[in-house]
Structure formats: structure tokens, C-alpha cells
Amino acid sequence: MKKTDIKSPLLLFLAAFIWGVAFVAQSKAKDYSVEPFTFNAVRNVIGGLTLLPCIFFLGKREPKEKKIEDNPKTLLIGGILCGTVLCIASNLQQIGINYTTVGKAGFITAMYIVLVPILGIFLKRRAGIKVWISVFLAVAGLYLLCMTEKLSLGKGDALVLLCALVFAIHILVIDHFSPKVDGVKLSCIQFLVCGVLSAIPMFLFEKPELGAICSAWLPILYAGIFSSGVGYTLQVIGQKNMDPTVASLILSLESVISVLAGWVLLKQQLSGRELLGCVVMFAAIILAQLPDKN
């Protein structure tokens, strides 16, 4: 068994932190009447373009012996698959949020932490008992954190549940390709693919207005540069040496961060139930990170 690498969990936690704060940006974008496909098309194209200079300068500075020799075919296939799956997941989430509450959407989306190990069974990647305990602890923590109303399955909830399934697939696809290719290049391709694919229904079903997009420049730039460009790149790099189930647990902390961000940035009060949910979530992550006994 591989030794625990502190760098990978920290990169994934930073990604979760960025995504958690992005919930504030996404909620603000709706105030400017930016529709779901438009929002995702613009943010992902910005995310991809942001990484182009990073690829150039990192390629210049990185020693030749440390560079990953990319197979162009593997890189392109991986980028297209990751981008397609990300496009489906992010648009299902963005549309679903319009038909349900933020709390229910956050709880149901985070169900990928259960779906990842279940899907992993079919891929012959079984999780240990400690990880399964962590998963169920995390679900309990998320329920306390996100759910304040009765859990029923409406139209928006069903869309978000499908989004959780597709996000679980996204984690497993990244787990397959991230050790084989350069993570920044893979991220760049996935964002550009996601942005182009989102632009198709944007022009077919929505009426994108340049004025609305420009008015929402701050949330769109945050979502594009930080949430997409930086956050998903950290996920790709951080997952290289991580079990996908443990990675999904750390990434699910975005729900905790989103609540804390709402408390700090939007002055939203935290109840005792929400604080208990945060504590249980963090306990689940710590348990998953504890080294196994020899």
C-alpha cells in the first residue's frame, strides 16, 4: 500500500475550498439573469484560456527529467471525455438548482461520495471498511449541514441526483487519466470542451445577452479563473496519488466551505445543527486519512 502523501489531500482540500466559495459566486450570477448554459459556457472557456499561459510558462521552467511525456492521443481522449462528463454534470446542477433549495441541492450533489465507491466495485476497486465508515459519517454530516426541510424528490432534486452520478463518473475518469498525462494540459482541454459543448444549448435554448454577462463579470471571473481553472486543475493533480473514494470525501468538504463562506461573506448565521454537521464531516475526512495499521 502507498504511503500517505500530505500534498495530494492538501491540493484536494484547496480545490474544495475554492468550490465552496464559488457557491456564493453562482448565487450572485443568477441575480444578473445569466442563464445556466450561458454561465457554464463562459466560465469554462475562461477557465481553459486561463491555463494556456500556465502551460507555456510551466513547460519552460520545469526540468526536462521531471516532465511527463504526454501521449497526444491519450491526452486528447482524456480531455474530451473529462470535458464531456463535466459539461453534463455542471449543467444538470446549474439547471436543477433553479427548481430546488440550495440546501437540498448541496446535500444531493455530495452523494457522489457514496456513488464513487459503489461504481468502484464494478471497476474492481473495493474500498476498505474504514473508508465506508467515513462515507456514511460524511453523509450524516451533510444531512445535518444541508437539510432543514423534508427530503422529497422533485424535478430539481432528480436533476441534481443525476448530476451527482455524473460527478462520480467524472472523478473515476480523472482517476484513470490523471497519472498518464500532464494535469494542467488535461484540465485545459476539459474546460474548452465543456465550454464549447455548453455553448451549443446556450445558442439553441437561451438568449445570451452580452450586457448581462458583463454585469456579472465578478462572479463569472471567479467561477472561470478560480473554480474552473484553478479548482479543477488542483483536483486533477491531487487525484494522481489518491484513492478515488478518499478523494471524493475530501472534495465533498465544498459543502462545509460553502456554509462557512455564506456565514463570513453573506453574514448568514450558523445553527447548532449546521455546526454539528461541519464537525461530523471533518471527523469523516480525518478518519479516512488515518494510516492503516500494519
Rank of each mutant, 00 (worst) to 15 (best):
T101W: 10
V116G: 06
S152G: 09
I121D: 01
S90M: 15
V166T: 14
I169A: 15
F136C: 07
E149D: 14
I113K: 01
I129H: 04
A164V: 03
D157H: 07
I118V: 15
L172S: 01
T100P: 02
I133T: 12
Q93W: 13
L142H: 10
R125G: 00
A158N: 10
K124T: 11
G106C: 06
L119K: 02
L161S: 10
T148N: 15
A164K: 01
Y143D: 11
T109W: 01
G120N: 00
L119P: 07
A138H: 01
L151N: 03
Q93I: 15
I95Y: 13
I129W: 06
M111K: 04
I133M: 14
Q93T: 14
K130C: 04
E149W: 00
A138C: 13
C146A: 12
L159P: 11
V135N: 11
A140T: 14
M111E: 13
I174V: 13
V116S: 06
V131F: 02
K104S: 12
G128P: 04
M111Q: 15
M111P: 10
K155F: 12
L123H: 04
K104W: 03
Y143A: 15
L119G: 03
M111C: 13
I174Y: 02
I169N: 06
D157S: 11
G156V: 01
P117E: 05
A140D: 09
L161E: 10
A138E: 04
L153V: 15
I171N: 00
S134F: 03
I113W: 01
D175F: 02
G96L: 14
G128E: 11
V173E: 03
K124L: 12
A138Y: 02
L92C: 09
L165W: 07
L151E: 06
G141M: 12
A110R: 04
V114D: 12
S90V: 05
S90Q: 14
K150R: 14
V135A: 10
L144M: 15
G96K: 12
I121V: 11
C146F: 09
C163Q: 04
W132F: 10
T148E: 14
L145D: 09
T148C: 01
C146R: 07
G103Q: 02
I169D: 08
A138L: 09
I174F: 01
T109G: 06
H170E: 13
F136I: 10
A140C: 14
Y99G: 07
L165A: 15
V114M: 14
Y112L: 06
C146Y: 09
H176K: 11
A105I: 00
I97E: 08
L161Q: 08
R126I: 01
A140Q: 05
M147G: 01
G154H: 08
K104Y: 03
S90I: 09
L137C: 09
L145Y: 06
A110T: 07
L159Y: 02
F167A: 05
I108E: 01
P117V: 03
S152V: 15
N98Q: 11
L172P: 02
A164M: 06
A110C: 14
I129S: 11
V166P: 12
I97M: 09
I95Q: 09
T101I: 08
I174T: 04
N91E: 01
A105M: 00
K130M: 07
G106P: 08
G141W: 10
I169M: 14
L123W: 07
S152K: 13
F107P: 13
L162R: 06
V114R: 09
L142R: 03
Y143C: 13
P117F: 04
H176D: 00
V166H: 11
V116D: 07
I108S: 00
I113N: 04
A140P: 02
